[in-house]
Write a protein that binds this DNA or RNA. Structure first.
Lengths: 214, 214, 214, 214
DNA sequence: GATGAATGAGTCTTCATTCAT
DNA sequence: GATGAATGAAGACTCATTCAT
């Protein structure tokens, strides 16, 4: 239960600005967004923005930091109890895409603006993104340690390959709308990745059918 | 054969502006780039830009159209004589990443700004990107037709999955520099994708080793 | 004797704000100074300022009124027992420059900001400045009455001439630091003014030497 | 006859902005002046200002440099043919005050804003002011060399004393309007200064009358 | 066709002031 | 009285675009 009074008012306003920024950045893009639009969407005065953020850039950076941290924690909470790298990876794919369905605007901002501001964000906000990649990296490491994933794979490379694949699908869904059966699509993608990663015989639950069986 | 005289001078200037825009957009991003910087880099006056392009937006769109067309043609010329969807796909991966090494600034613009301007480009310049995706799509179709790739895969989905994976690696190389052995990395990625796509037993040249064999 | 209790607390805060304003105005200038800086320097909240002053302008005006009144009273107390216009004028010069050494920040504010806000201050705060000029004016009047100063001099003009000379030296000392021997400088200036003002034969204590005697 | 075409247009615009800035700074003060007001007064667009000046500060600095240079040259041209330090000094006083009558707004800006921006101008634009003081300094040096002025005087000190006296009178005339007979006032001031500076017996043309003679 | 000086609309940011607590 | 979070009006500056030469 949040404490009343100032400290609550303060966090409350800051959070409202963050959420408003996600909306406006998603709709107009970072450069197309006006600080006054964010203020209006947050229900605060223009100047109030600057009580909580140093600049417009700082809003974007803060959105990254805050939301990436939140996503990473959410993923970690879901994934940590799961046994087995294969199951973890499958669940990761499903959960990320679930997130896209739940919060398309947030994902749009993170996906579109993260890249567009790549140089700038790489300088100012590398932590959030690095932690996200680490989520994938840990699964890959575990899979290699337990002999499920091919040890010949460069995990530094493949965590980006996997991220890129998921990220592109996220973008597609966010801009073009999700497909009729997102769940099936998510599992197709997970199957694909697992076939690519796993030692022969794995994954047990992804029958390496030949086309005749289809 | 290009017409001589004036019209050649004309294309020459237009082309110089396009190349200059690639440089400047790569260095500063679309929004950070000034039209006057592009003009200076192209060795023309500011106003001259507007003899060849309607607006700053139009420069970006034209860069896309022109360069995407060029890339697609280049890929098609390389891929069309190749026999077999597996070999074609492998070569596609290698060639795209080769392009990243050869023209990092161009790839940076296409990769970073394409996404950033996603909505805007989706509206104004969908052709180039669609044609690029079609290059991957055709390979997938051929693979399914010839029974090499799993027919259960939604090619509309997987051409984006593959594009996303390659695109992310491109971004990494462009912003962080290429790895020590880009050729090996390219083949690792190609192996991964082919394992994901192929019917059991394929690809013939990608031994589905288990970790003991490694 | 100051009133005890609340009213003392009240004047205390008001006075602290005045002193803080002198510091901040001296350091940043009137326009460069932030009300919040003055509040911080005074150890009060921003809003508290407005319990004692109508506006930022009002702070400056109050500084003038208060400090000018104080300076005028101090000068009058020192000068009134002194016999003779010449001695009075000399002492005035010495005491003003002494003040510069003692309270450079105050003098800086009065000297720099008074002029910069000249129009504005002329409208809002003429009393303090007029009283200061009157100090010089009274000395001039006395000197003319007692036949020591030339009666041909327009005292309205010369009180400004004298003020300007002293003011400029004050500014120099305040911004560039005082000279090695400020006392000697003060007397040189006093000698100069007295030679300019006095009837031939005066001042008795300023021998009208020719250069050979030097 | 001014050269036609670009270079003329350019200097012309820059000069118009300078003159407009003098008007607006005189009327509103530096901080009260809006860049758009200067632009309007100069008959140019707001943005045009920034083709000729880096910032609003730069306009003020440029006004100083340019006008101080002009004034110093004007004074030097008038003073250099004059024989004798006494006559030179008298003429300097008269000419400076003549300038006040001719161009009160310019003098107001130089007098009021110079001081207000003292710290800032001392950093950015010391040359113009130093040259102005040097005009007075050279006269004092010459007077001491030729045995007309007291050699005991510190010329570094007295050039400021003299400047301060004249500057204060200038301010008075500029803000309160000139007196009924400015010429007489100028000579009264010159007489005063010369009596203060000169060896006994000098100045020949300033009879050291006693009050009875008046 | 080519130029580049000029334009002026557009926006981030500051900060004096207010007022609910 | 005291606080300081909130306000919002105001302005310096940028830069894509135009057009007279």
């Amino acid at each position: 239960m949040p404490a009343p009074g100032r400290s609550h008012g303060r966090s409350d306003k800051r959070q409202r600005i963050i959420e408003a920024a996600v909306e406006v950045f998603a709709e107009k893009g970072f450069f197309g967004a006006r600080v006054s639009e964010i203020a209006e969407a947050a229900g605060v005065a223009d100047g109030t923005i600057y009580l909580y953020f140093k600049s417009k850039d700082d809003i974007l950076i803060s959105v990254f930091e805050e939301k990436m941290t939140w996503i990473v924690r959410r993923l970690q909470e879901i994934l940590s109890p799961i046994e087995g790298a294969e199951a973890k990876l499958r669940r990761y794919v499903v959960e990320h895409l679930q997130l896209v369905l739940e919060q398309p605007k947030l994902i749009q901002v993170l996906t579109v603006e993260l890249r567009q501001s790549a140089r700038f964000v790489k300088q100012h906000s590398p932590k959030g993104f690095a932690k996200y990649l680490a989520v994938i990296g840990h699964i890959l490491d575990e899979g290699q340690r337990t002999g499920v994933f091919l040890t010949s794979l460069d995990t530094g490379l493949f965590r980006r390959v996997i991220f890129g694949a998921i990220d592109e699908i996220s973008l597609e869904w966010v801009l073009g709308g999700p497909p009729a059966d997102p769940h099936a699509a998510a599992h197709q993608v997970a199957d694909f990745i697992l076939r690519g990663l796993c030692v022969r015989g794995h994954p047990a639950d992804v029958p390496q059918i030949d086309n005749r069986e289809t």
